[in-house]
Design a protein around this nucleic acid. Sequence first.
RNA 1: GUGCCUAUGGUUUAAUGGUAGAACGGCGGGUUGUGGUCCCGCUAGCCUGGGUUCGAUUCCCAGUAGGCACCCCA
Length: 443
Amino acid sequence: MSTHNLLSGFQDFLPESMLARNNLVSVVRGCYEKFGFLPQDTPCLERTELLTGKYGDNEKMIYSFEDHGGRRVSLRYDLTVPLTRFINMYINNIVFPYRRYQVGLSWRADKPGKGRFREFMQMDADIIGDESVLADVEVLTLMASAMEALGVRSTIRFNCRQILDSLVEMCQLDSETSVSLMRSIDKFDKIGQAGVLAELAGIGFSPGIIDKVGDYLKITGTNAEVLQGLTRLLGEAGAFQTGIALLSSITDLLAVQSHSLVDFEIDPTIARGLDYYTGLIFETRFVENPEFGSVCSGGRYDRLLKRPNGEFLPAVGLSIGIDRLLAAMKSVGKAPVFKTTTQVFIANFDEKLSSEYLKLAGELRQAGVAVEIFSKQSKIAKQLDIANKKYIPLVVLVGPDEISLSQVLLKDMRAGVQITVQRDQFVPAVLERLGLNNHPLAV
RNA sequence: GUGCCUAUGGUUUAAUGGUAGAACGGCGGGUUGUGGUCCCGCUAGCCUGGGUUCGAUUCCCAGUAGGCACCCCA
């Protein structure tokens, strides 16, 4: 075992992985921009004080250290909290409601696992300065349209903090016990209703409360049935009216559009979420491989961002975990595989012909074709072998014979055929040949 | 962070108390300007430290790394 080891939870990317990741990013970016979100970026390092106090228990997973000037600095834990600084600094340069997206790495000193890394790429989209339900729905719709663009069947399950608050109120819990209640409820997917209730009993919750939670967990069915069930159980609680009004408006508005690959479900067991969420919360998972957990989650956070005068700026957003998404897509065989982006390989017969190769390459590049010149000297068989291993679809063969005849040999590696074209027909011939297969680079 | 399992060339692996064999890969070759098949050659390895032993890659302990579960999350 050499000392040249990857740190646990960190990843290298060979070109093939990079192309797959880039593809995901560009598909998602396309969706974000279609919804009117604009790109934005912030540094990976922030002052530690900026990040603390916003993630609850998870705070211990922030990578922190002292820089050369003795400042406490931290690698960002997500792309949301650094917004507090960003918004505050540029409040006068931003037109609200502000639709922004950001692609970047985040770091968490977490224990790595399936689809779980210490350095991972997130793609966030947020609407800032907008408290409307329509903004919530836009974010949910954006999520659905991203999953559809990726061609993955998924379920977006949502809930809101007010509903959970109502349950806590009905059970008359203090904030500490409510946290452990939330944790247990959140495990519903894994351990089922009986498991959750047993766990609550183990922790020492009273039978009365366990009954109430049991009734809460029993609420399932269509979105309309869930709303009815919640009303029956929690209708008396103070926060309930706000919560139920929100969920039903969202449901009504979501029903306007249909998504063939995505289902929206109200799920009262969606409890998690970082400390800063205040309203809508949601998670997205694959229908075919839910074991990967949420590949995208988000919600409304109306009390995180502030204007300089202390007034809160309402916001709602989502965060896609690109690396987990890619891992999950691979697991269901939905990740497109890209071997190369190079379209033409120019073989090298003789150093003396270098200027001709440069000319040929220049003409193709001018026409928008991606070209690699084989710049070393090597046997032609070897060069073809290399072109083949690189999955480059077309090889241009020009040696002394072709020069004297003003011809170019074009070899299509996919079909195994070779054609001779006149030198002045070179570029059109290459373009035509490349056009024969719509996706020559996807294997 | 806790529990269980694992650790052999770049990768996947076999065998063994007397230091290891293979496949894939890489490199070269099967004559002169043609790939993806085939044939040949070369390349490179027992995670680290201690212990038991005449002798340890092999057994024991610890460390480290990886996997699975818990926890939490993208």
